[in-house]
Design a protein around this nucleic acid. Structure first.
Length: 268
DNA sequence: CTAATTCCCTGGAAGC
DNA sequence: TGCTTCCAGGGAATTA
């Protein structure tokens, strides 16, 4: 599923293709995504001004407002000839003359929304925590967030009000790298260990984005290969296999309705 | 306020 | 081979 690195890779891929281009048509084949796709009848004739990202939301800025796209769990965007035949899961597209930016989303957990106000004021975006790769996400900040709560550290990381863009894969992997048990109460972790956790999150995400960038040149021809396929996963999806560090069998259990994997030897 | 639970949806894997 | 069942997963909405 698209994690933050994949969304950022998508942003970098589509930005140079659509910035400055005028929308010629909007096509909605299946409006029922997570929420119904709103009417975008006013868009044709308007030009794309910016292509940015906040958390896992892609923000396509126009003079009259912002198109907000979330890829959910199975969404992908491609830029291709407008006359290429759509797949049955190709629900939405913006056409730019002979090309189209097309959204495919088999599981329809994604979203296409419109915000007439600045996107920072939008209901879904206003209350989000800092970007993990920004300077606002640092050890002191995470320590302050952690000390007044007691839930498992993994759930704290996956709370978008605390930090955005850290999904199950990256939470699982960064906790392994930092040697922290995913179920450990977040207020019972030292500042020093949280500092290590912050560093690991940044490092792992940055590397995934960098690797996503290497597939960018193929962007127009196929879905960007998710960065985590190239990145070595140490615990995620490796339940029952030996730990790459110590050989202990990787365990898993549900933490906050999500499967969490960890090495019982390396993570405390 | 924090925390826990429910719900949306379908492809793919596993079981029969 | 074909059918059925189960599971994953982001994150908003709802409930406690």
């Amino acid at each position: 599923m698209p994690e933050l690195p994949e969304v950022e890779t998508t942003r970098r891929g589509i930005a140079p293709l659509i910035e400055g281009k005028a929308v010629s048509a909007v096509i909605v084949r299946q409006p029922r995504l997570r929420w119904d796709i709103p009417s975008l009848d006013h868009l044709p004739g308007e030009s794309v001004r910016t292509v940015s990202r906040r958390a896992k939301y892609l923000l396509i800025g126009f003079d009259s407002g912002t198109l907000i796209i979330h890829l959910g769990m199975s969404g992908s965007l491609r830029f291709l000839p407008a006359d290429s035949p759509p797949d049955r899961h190709d629900h939405f597209e913006l056409q730019f003359g002979r090309h189209a930016l097309r959204l495919r989303d088999p599981r329809r957990f994604g979203a296409v929304l419109w915000s007439a106000e600045p996107p920072t004021e939008h209901k879904l975006i206003r209350a989000l925590g800092p970007e993990p790769l920004s300077q606002d996400f640092h050890a002191d900040y995470l320590y302050q967030q952690a000390r007044r709560r007691r839930l498992p550290i993994k759930q704290l990381l996956m709370n978008n009000g605390v930090v955005v863009g850290v999904g199950n894969i990256y939470a699982t992997e960064s906790l392994f790298q930092a040697g922290i048990h995913p179920a450990r109460a977040c207020n019972r972790i030292s500042r020093a260990r949280l500092e290590s956790l912050v560093e690991n999150i940044k490092e792992i995400l940055a590397r995934a984005i960098q690797q996503g960038g290497t597939t960018l040149r193929d962007f127009q021809h196929e879905d960007g290969k998710p960065g985590y396929f190239q990145q070595q996963l140490h615990v995620y999806g490796r339940v029952g296999e030996p730990c790459s560090t110590c050989g202990t069998t990787i365990k898993a259990k549900q933490i906050g309705q999500r499967t969490s994997a960890w090495c019982p030897q390396c993570q405390r």
